[in-house]
Nucleic acid binder design. Structure first.
Lengths: 336, 336
DNA sequence: AATTAGCACTCTAAGCCCGAGAGTGCTAAT
DNA sequence: ATTAGCACTCTCGGGCTTAGAGTGCTAATT
């Protein structure tokens, strides 16, 4: 158990280190704190904090650097801070200025978040918990080459090219599309695959394509997330040696980032913080992640997340992630 | 004018430097070349090459490093090399294995190119020279909220949410969509904006949305290009100091990369090489770009491009860019 | 018992010197 | 025109030194 004073000191050390990226000396704490004690006393407390594992020292006589445990303490101590009213207003304002378009919202959220957190932000597209057919369309392009347009519930549109064995007139295609649209309306993938009804060979072919497109959508591993602010992260002093980030870069490019960092369990619309070694994947042992779900749990959920070095401005990042997740959820509820 | 021997030596210096990233000593050239001359002779030639500006030296008594002019010479000397047959076969094979889908092709092209060039590759989506309406669809989502699906020539699908002043039944929406689809078929943006015909207020509203969507498409500055291999570039010794690449990273994120590097004129389907200081933008004074257009000049064109340090394996990169641009053009011709 | 002044001690970072090695330029011989 | 030979230049790494930052400990103070 830490004394109140020890807690104050620890929080000061963490804040200052987050701010300055330099080991914190006892003297500075003595000056900045309103405790009115001498550096020597701070040093005694610091010795205890080190012994308890809250802080580390680069070497025998160096200043204090927070450990993962220290950051964890810090994060817990500011769990319930919410975003300042002025920032809330600013975010709402910006979101309502932009076009009514899911992709624009997500991309905007990523940009704002990266900007605020001065780190990399990732926002994934909401992934349907099991997508449902809404409508389809067939358009003849040339000879036997045809474009299938599939509209899913939630205003998601997918397209796919197919080739029929023989040319079909556009008028016949329209008839087929209308028939299937009516037949499959509101169904999910399995229901479409099993649906009993007389279908011509061409229609059967289309049914299979539709089924595959929907499966594709269901299985999609957070495809093409909206990502912004990598350069902010790179400006952090942690990255003066570039090798530190190469493996990370690769993850980002491979789009495997979210899959890798996504924790098993995630409370809805409440930011989860994963600090340093708490990450399962070794790649992120020097990184922290602030992540939250958003969306409508019965329909589709995505994630909002910030990735940066463990030395991250949690006090600002956590409420921002929380608030953006709330806004996106609200905006999405209009689409279902 | 360079003597044949000087040319041989210069090409050897460039190749070796591209390969090893280390200043090239006269002795190595003497050994590797089949000229049968001593290092001293090579040194004499090197002195001339330096005087003429083809090579640089880090300091008074250091080995040779190619200058931009040296690279330029090298590139000109291998202008007409084409890809080895086995690689051609490999590429064709891979492309015909993948689904018939433009986005998949482009993403595949970027990955292959990055892999081959061991540098960053960018492939932009083909940008219509002026997009043409093909078909539209209206789908009621909830109350007055409606999804507009617009299909353009070239199998490009765009969607957009709109809100009507009052709710309209899906059946009426279908009638409207069919009417407008017929009226606007094959037209470009201006023609749609000017088309004379009686339209209800709701239809007029849709016409405006369509016009805006098409304008959006026309003006789109190479949106969301397919990008791969950043991490390859970062592994180059040029980037052991990470600050070198931060501004670059920012450009990539802002999607402004292509806009910035795109040269004024670009021969169709023939790789253009821009070396170091030849780049107009100062950011790229240490980079080279190998870039080519692809597509159907009357319909839609995109670009294939590789970006890396001036020390780049041109001999491999140029034919690869050429070949991919050719393949993509061929594949695209099926869509128009 | 907690605090603190004082001081010795530790460790880092930067500067400096030095020598080894790589590679050239020049000169004089072929 | 070529080249052997050699002096010269420059870089790079190791080792040494010093200044400075910051601590831990001890003994005095409240």
């Amino acid at each position: 158990m830490l004394s109140t004073r020890a807690e104050t000191i620890l929080n000061l050390i963490v804040s200052r280190y987050i701010d300055q990226a330099v080991p914190v000396p006892s003297q500075d704490i003595a000056q900045e704190s309103a405790l009115g004690v001498s550096p020597a006393t701070i040093r005694n407390e610091m010795a205890r904090l080190e012994h308890e594992g809250y802080i580390l020292r680069a070497h025998h006589s160096a200043g204090s650097v927070p450990s993962d445990k220290g950051y964890r303490f810090h994060v817990e101590s500011l769990k319930d801070i919410s975003l300042s009213e002025s920032e809330q207003r600013f975010f709402s304002h910006v979101f309502h200025q932009v076009e009514r378009d899911l992709e624009k919202w997500l991309s905007l959220a990523a940009t704002l978040l990266a900007q605020q957190a001065q780190n990399m932000a990732v926002v994934t597209t909401p992934r349907p918990t099991g997508c449902r057919f809404k409508h389809m369309e067939l358009l003849s392009l040339q000879d036997t080459l045809t474009l299938v347009v599939l509209v899913l519930h939630g205003a998601k549109v997918k397209e796919q090219l197919i080739t029929f064995d023989e040319a079909i007139l556009q008028s016949s295609l329209t008839v087929i599309a209308n028939k299937l649209s009516a037949a499959f309306s509101g169904l999910n993938r399995e229901q479409i695959a099993e649906k009993e009804s007389y279908l011509s060979p061409a229609e059967e072919q289309i049914r299979e394509i539709l089924s595959r497109m929907m499966q594709d959508e269901d299985e999609q591993e957070y495809e093409a997330p909206y990502l912004d602010g990598f350069h902010f992260m790179l400006s952090q002093p942690e990255f003066t040696r570039s090798d530190r980030m190469r493996s990370l870069m690769e993850l980002v490019e491979k789009r495997r980032l979210i899959k890798t960092i996504l924790p098993k369990e995630l409370e809805s619309q409440k930011a989860t913080v994963i600090i340093g070694m708490e990450n399962e994947d070794e790649t992120f042992h020097n990184y922290s992640i602030v992540i939250s779900k958003y969306g409508i749990s019965t329909e589709a959920v995505g994630t909002v997340c910030v990735l940066g070095p463990t030395r991250m401005p949690y006090g600002h990042t956590i409420p921002t992630v929380n608030y953006l997740s709330k806004i996106l959820s609200e905006l999405m509820s209009g689409l279902y």
